[in-house]
């Protein structure tokens, strides 16, 4: 579940801790306040890590079972590349709006201080972190060292952990929200996505604590007139 289980990541972290370029950001390696994590989501110009760029970043702290939405971090970033038309369709951020944003290097100090040493929570978090790392590496000389909590993995474990082989697995964001009864806020807005991710995280963590599972429909989903 966390990066520590992977010795490669652990070694990389140690290396980074030793080689961090900007000593002001050593706090990233110190543990954050106990029982706090940060849900994070980025909207990007596209899905290609090598060429696309971040447009918006939203991060929300979770303290215990309280999602501190009122103290969220939210930034509009000015991308260096043109936004792919397909991406505009997804998040409705026009190029002109994105231009109003700040350069990523002006945004990073606040974001890093907001995150601190807290574990990061996300849905397909690898992508968001890879996007962030492109900038972070150049900025402070190391990649984000934070523990990572993948919500889709928690969801998989609660729903399909004991599934017989051959079960059809659906880990889509929509399926997860529906299973947890979390309302669909308008999606592809980084703050809303981060908020829904945070809600899913606290719900899944509680299910895990209580050893409760999400029921799987036996065969086909029963017909639900009028939808869910």
């Amino acid at each position: 579940m966390t990066g520590w289980s992977n010795p490669w990541l652990a070694a990389k972290r140690l290396f980074h801790q030793a080689t961090i370029g900007d000593q002001n950001y050593r706090f990233l390696f110190r543990p954050g306040p106990p029982d706090e994590v940060v849900a994070i989501d980025c909207e990007t110009t596209g899905l290609d890590v090598a060429h696309d760029e971040i447009i918006t970043i939203a991060a929300i702290r979770i303290r215990g079972s309280r999602i501190l939405a009122s103290e969220r971090f939210e930034a509009l970033v000015r991308p260096d590349v043109r936004i792919a038309p397909e991406a505009i369709k997804v998040h409705h951020l026009l190029e002109s709006e994105a231009k109003a944003g700040a350069l990523i290097y002006h945004v990073l100090p606040d974001l890093l201080r907001f995150i601190g040493g807290r574990p990061l929570v996300g849905y397909y978090l690898e992508f968001d972190i890879a996007m962030l790392n492109k900038a972070v590496l150049g900025f402070i000389g190391v990649e984000l060292p934070n523990k990572r909590i993948e919500v889709s993995r928690l969801y998989h474990e609660r729903k399909y952990g004991d599934a017989p082989p051959g079960t059809v697995v659906d880990l889509s964001f929509a399926a997860m929200l529906a299973d947890l009864g979390i309302p669909r806020l308008s999606q592809h807005d980084a703050v809303n996505d981060a908020l829904m991710t945070a809600m899913a995280y606290v719900a899944l963590r509680d299910l895990k604590r209580r050893g409760a599972r999400i029921p799987r429909p036996r065969m086909k989903a029963p017909l639900q007139p009028g939808g869910v």
Binding site: S65, R66, I67, L68, A69, S70, L195, A198, M199, D206
Partner: peptide, 9 residues
């Protein structure tokens, strides 16, 4: 702007 979200078991 002032709202947080709480989860209750």
């Amino acid at each position: 702007a002032s709202l947080d979200v709480g989860y209750f078991t």
